[in-house]
């Protein structure tokens, strides 16, 4: 960031509020629906939901940051796998070494992507598609095209150990990361710069925001967050898969869109992403509780994603805006009419 004097930090929360209601709705459903199928949700359900959100939510957070800046990182599904694989391969002696290695590799990867996107002004979706393939290819090559098991089972057990019935160290890590990003977005200049860049790139540049630096850092962060999620997953299951498929990406996109983020950028933040991620984790846990077959989750997430993407499409957004304009004009004309009639009497 440019040499700006430290300003008194002013807290501003500018995210849409409706994702919270959506989440609440899903909480209600999670407890209301299973009894219909002779099942029941319990504290263990909550624990599971939080466990999954801690991992996949991190990927969503990474993707979400790039969306807020007005870009899109398709490669998060790849860095998710790559981070886990590197950590498993290099962390047999000391899990922290594995963690650092995985993060270092992926963050560097992300920064390079960000650099190309920022300086060469390339469509981030197209570039990160290539990045996804490279990351996936690297993962498979390192892993010899099969899953690699992690010999250190202890770390997984420690991370997964239930604390207070519904929490665990893994979950605390997730909460800490979300909180850190939340504070970053709302308190620091970098966070403001990210939202400004997404909300109006040209205006931000003329106002002096270092747009290129913001973009580069954001892509480094998205890769790093996705890698962190993958590393957590790998340690906790003591396995690193060569190809986890596109589900992490689907989860992430749906979570972000449900969390109030837009594809155009500028809107939303960590709080919304957390709501969206929890919502989807709850949904899939709900299916699990009622013992629905695996494909049901895929079916619902796919449908949900289509619905949400359509809701975020230019056509729908425009129709919303037009309806709002029409409504406000009607209110104006009604107000004029009543004031006319009252002044005439």
């Amino acid at each position: 960031m440019s040499a700006q004097a430290r300003m008194k930090p002013r807290f501003s929360f500018a995210e849409p509020k409706w994702p919270v209601f959506l989440l609440l709705a899903l909480v209600i459903l999670t407890f209301a629906i299973p009894p219909i199928f002779n099942q029941a949700s319990s504290a263990f359900t909550i624990y599971n939901v939080l466990q999954n959100t801690a991992v996949l939510g991190m990927v969503a957070l990474g993707l979400g940051l790039t969306m807020i800046v007005g870009e899109f990182d398709l490669s998060v599904a790849g860095t998710y796998a790559l981070g886990g694989m590197v950590a498993v391969k290099l962390g047999t002696g000391n899990p922290f070494v594995g963690l650092l290695a995985g993060l270092a590799v992926c963050v560097t990867f992300g920064l390079i992507q960000g650099l190309i996107i920022a300086k060469l002004k390339i469509n981030s979706m197209a570039l990160t598609l290539g990045g996804y393939l490279v990351a996936l290819g690297l993962t498979g090559t390192i892993g010899n095209n099969k899953s690699q098991s992690f010999s250190n089972y202890d770390i997984g057990i420690q991370l997964n150990q239930p604390i207070g019935t519904v929490f665990s160290i893994r979950i605390f890590i997730g909460i800490a990361v979300f909180l850190a990003v939340f504070l970053l977005m709302n308190l620091t200049n970098l966070g403001r710069g990210m939202r400004a860049t997404g909300g109006g790139r040209r205006a931000s540049r003329t106002a002096g925001v270092r747009v290129d630096a913001v973009v580069i850092l954001t892509f480094g962060a998205s890769a790093g967050l996705a890698a962190l999620g993958g590393i957590l997953q790998a340690y906790c299951t003591a396995t690193a898969t060569s190809n986890p498929g596109l589900f992490p990406l689907i989860f992430a996109v749906t979570a972000c869109l449900l969390g109030g983020l837009g594809l155009a950028g500028g809107r939303g933040g960590a709080f919304g992403i957390a709501c969206g991620a929890l919502t989807i984790a709850m949904l899939s846990e709900l299916f699990s509780t009622v013992a629905a077959p695996q494909y049901v989750t895929g079916l619902f997430t796919g449908l949900l994603l289509i619905v949400v993407t359509t809701a975020a499409s230019p056509y729908v957004v425009r129709k919303w805006r037009e309806r709002r304009i029409d409504r406000s004009l009607k209110i104006e004309s009604k107000a004029l009419a009543t004031s006319d009639s009252s002044s005439q009497s």
């Binding site: 979706m125 689907i250 996109v253 796919g302 449908l303 975020a312």
Partner: peptide
């Protein structure tokens, strides 16, 4: 018709 993002739509359709 809606201008929805092609990559996301096709990913979702694939999962479906």
């Amino acid at each position: 018709f809606t201008g929805a993002n092609p990559i996301i739509v096709t990913i979702a359709a694939g999962a479906l």
